[in-house]
Nucleic acid binder design. Structure first.
Lengths: 212, 212
DNA sequence: CACTAATTCACCCTATTTCGCTATTGTTTC
DNA sequence: GAAACAATAGCGAAATAGGGTGAATTAGTG
């Protein structure tokens, strides 16, 4: 029996969800609340396995509430549901500790499936959300794939790497077995290609644009 | 009609997938290949909408192949499938540009559903994978807020920030309305606290340890 | 009040960096 | 075989950075 609590400010929706859970086999509704003002005592009084959380709510919104829940009841899973398809929401929801993110266009059966899915250790997501998560993930973690390497040559990349490592010209020259003047030339060329004018700027650009 | 190409080194599986696609309504198989050696010319000769890509393959593995595909045919969607449930794989697959990631334990119907799902703009994932993606996302994007700041003072942090921005001592002094010797002192103290001996090293440490 | 930390500034000296120009040697490309 | 590019190297200058030492001011704390 999966115990589910509902936080949803729309009265009609809230009662629909409640009814859905109560009539479905294997699910119970431990509470259906219109806001998150007394969230912690409410969940203490009526414990649950999963919270179905609306994002758009007056007072404490769904993201903040998720954070609160994970702080106080880390084992409770939070399923975010929203009408909006917005990157910032998705991002914040994941960071707040949500276990799933579904759109309100989902069918009744879809809700039950998502809840069961989360309960089984999955992270149900509307397909479109999944795609956005993939893309957010990729962009936030690997911005360099979209970024060409400024046409640095192999040797220039090596020199830049050493620069990032905080080495001096002299040390880099020794490391690469070339004359210090060669390093000077390489660094001049690197600066030109990166459009920077100092080592610190080059290092920042190298790391941020993840050339290195 | 969704056109699907298969890359899978296991002959039995490869032919099973091929048969599945050919008998299912709305799907065609444009090719079933045991390795990725001639991937680009093969996809050029037989274009497809979606590639079903195994990760574990001799020669070019599925991740590299995905990268190749996205470089040469950015509009082609890649569905990764694997027997392994490993964070590094998931991470790399997403970064390589995969549109979905499913485990081989999926049922035949599940495959068709995943392909249709990807084709419709979603990112099909096995539920467990989805959970891992959420967690990876959260961990990678919310690095430990517990990161100590090496006890840098406010002013030192400002100076370090300017250093990261690639500014010279002179510019930093102008920016903070103090004498250049003051900046020198701050930077000396910053270097001592970070245990570094050059601007480039300090910048790398600042960014990597996310002080800034 | 005495003590400490943070911030400020100065002077000196040396090392390093940045940038100008030039040039040779291979390799690859057309 | 000319053109383009990568990698190498040199010279010289001006600017910047790095490190030593010392010290005044301010703010907060027991």
């Amino acid at each position: 029996m999966i115990q589910v609590a509902i936080f949803e400010d729309n009265k009609h929706l809230r009662e629909t969800f409640k009814l859905l859970l109560e009539t479905a086999e294997g699910y119970t509704c431990t509470g259906a609340y219109p806001d998150c003002r007394d969230l912690v005592p409410q969940l203490e009084a009526s414990p649950c396995d999963i919270v179905l959380m609306d994002i758009e709510m007056p007072g404490i919104n769904g993201i903040k509430a998720t954070r609160l829940i994970k702080e106080n009841f880390p084992e409770v899973l939070v399923l975010i549901q929203t009408v909006f398809f917005e990157d910032a929401y998705i991002f914040d929801a994941i960071c707040a500790g949500a276990s799933g993110y579904i759109l309100k266009s989902t069918t009744p059966a879809g809700y039950l499936e998502a809840i069961a899915n989360a309960n089984a250790g999955g992270s149900p997501m509307t397909p479109g959300i999944a795609r956005r998560v993939f893309e957010l993930f990729k962009n936030k973690l690997q911005p360099q794939l979209t970024n060409d390497t400024y046409n640095l040559t192999n040797q220039e990349k090596k020199v830049l790497q050493q620069l990032v490592d905080g080495k001096s010209y002299k040390l880099i020259a020794a490391e690469l077995f070339v004359a210090i003047d060669t390093i000077k030339t390489h660094i001049r060329n690197i600066y030109a290609k990166l459009h920077v004018h100092s080592g610190t700027e080059a290092v920042t650009k190298a790391i941020r644009d993840k050339i290195i």
